Simulated assay, not measured.
Amino acid sequence: MTQTAANPAPHVLVTGSTRGIGAAIVETLTAQGARVVGHGRTDGAGVIGADLAEAGGADTLWARALEQLDGRIDVLINNAGVFEAVAVDAPDDAWQASWGRTLQINLQASADLCRRAVLHFRARGGGGRIVNIASRAAYRGDSPAHWHYAASKAGMVGMTKSIARGYAIEEILAFAVCPGFVMTGMAEDYLASRGGDKLLADIPLGRVADPAEVASVAAYLALEAPGSMTGAVIDVNGASFVR
């Protein structure tokens, strides 16, 4: 992508950017000329610290990112998420707390940021793009200890499609990416806990995805995908789930 005065570098906010898929997305977008602000638990170089488990955390993150990007955000990439187990026979308070935390971080905070993005895009005109990193669990479900994770990612897909349908006429585009297992810390822990070889046998490709593979798809949607693709959900799962 070539930047000129008429076509300035896109300004991008990426949540959950300090490791795994998020870090790979930042690296890929930066290499393609984008100006990127990331997000993590604490402030750092190019990273805004914000707790998305807290109500209002997403709004604070958006405001700080907007300030750092000189009042213009062109692309929002919602990648932050948690993948925490809770057993069906867990104590009631633990069950409720786990569902609340997962839905808050994975879905509500993403929704809050999408809302801010839509309002920002509409106010300044010219459209914008949203890329939500969901999961194959949105379609095929997940383990008995991860109902809440699957539900949060299904909600993210539904939200993405709603945004695409509602705002396409204003050139506000929305896409989702649904990875299967990706070799991040979360996936490594889960593979180990569930018996890695058995799970790998369920992936026809014979391996889990590399974060760079997911990042390449996210970067394409963020910077290059044609408008007619809005609402698309792209699978990156080694054919472990084919729709």
Rank of each mutant, 00 (worst) to 15 (best):
A215V: 11
S216D: 14
K161R: 15
A94L: 11
G166S: 15
P179V: 10
A97W: 08
L223P: 12
L200E: 03
A209W: 01
I234S: 12
L103I: 14
W99I: 14
A45P: 11
T184F: 01
A50Q: 08
E67Q: 15
V233C: 08
R243S: 12
M183Q: 10
T2A: 14
G49Y: 07
I169S: 14
I172Y: 01
D189Y: 00
R207G: 04
G33W: 07
G20W: 06
H11S: 14
V47D: 09
G100P: 01
W99M: 13
G127A: 00
S17P: 11
F181I: 10
A138Q: 05
T4V: 13
S110W: 01
I48C: 12
P144S: 03
V12C: 04
I21M: 03
S193M: 05
A168T: 09
P211I: 04
C178Y: 03
D235Y: 02
V157E: 12
D70I: 03
V242A: 11
M183P: 00
A24L: 08
S240L: 01
K153L: 11
E170V: 01
E171Q: 13
A137Q: 05
F181S: 01
Y190I: 00
A187I: 01
A187S: 13
Q3S: 15
P91V: 06
Q68E: 15
Y139L: 13
M1Y: 14
N79L: 12
W62L: 04
L13P: 12
R165W: 10
W99C: 08
L119W: 00
A23V: 03
A239V: 07
L119K: 06
G100A: 15
A50P: 09
G166Y: 10
A215F: 06
S193I: 00
A94K: 11
L52G: 08
G231P: 10
G100M: 11
T160M: 09
V37L: 12
E224S: 13
G46W: 02
N78G: 13
A192S: 11
A222F: 04
N79S: 13
P8F: 02
A50I: 05
T18Y: 08
M159D: 05
R41C: 06
L61C: 08
V177Y: 07
V26Y: 04
R64A: 14
T184G: 03
R101V: 09
Y139F: 14
R122D: 07
G33S: 11
L200N: 02
T18H: 12
G71I: 07
L76Q: 02
S216C: 02
E67R: 15
A24E: 06
Y139P: 00
G227I: 03
S98C: 09
A123F: 01
